[in-house]
Amino acid sequence: MTLLNIGLIGVLGLLGVGFYGLLTSRNLIKVIIALQILAKAAVLALLVAGNASGQIGLGQSVAITVIVADTIVAVIGMALAIQVRRQMHTLDVVELARLRG
């Protein structure tokens, strides 16, 4: 069991959890958390890839940028969630389906 394999298992596990959350959660906050889990999977994947190819520095610098960017996305997502709660008095994404067809 090398470090690489552990990393890969970690990536797959995080992806599984994240997608499960995205597909099944009805709560908007949970959806955003699931997104964050997916983002962490991507960060881990980049670190693993950097290590595997010997480009450790490159992998790490990309990973750090991704962390920053995803934080911004999470913040905007949360801001939208707050507005949704205020305007529509719910966080249920199933009710968030006025636009369709």
Binding site: F19, L22, L23, T24, S25, R26, V31, V93, V94, L96, A97, R98, L99, R100, G101
Partner: peptide, 17 residues
């Protein structure tokens, strides 16, 4: 076809996957 456009977030993500 229009009936498949449910506007549900979970369903939309499922389409991507």
């Amino acid at each position: 076809l229009s009936r498949t456009q449910t506007g549900q977030l979970n369903w939309n993500v499922a389409a991507i996957v």
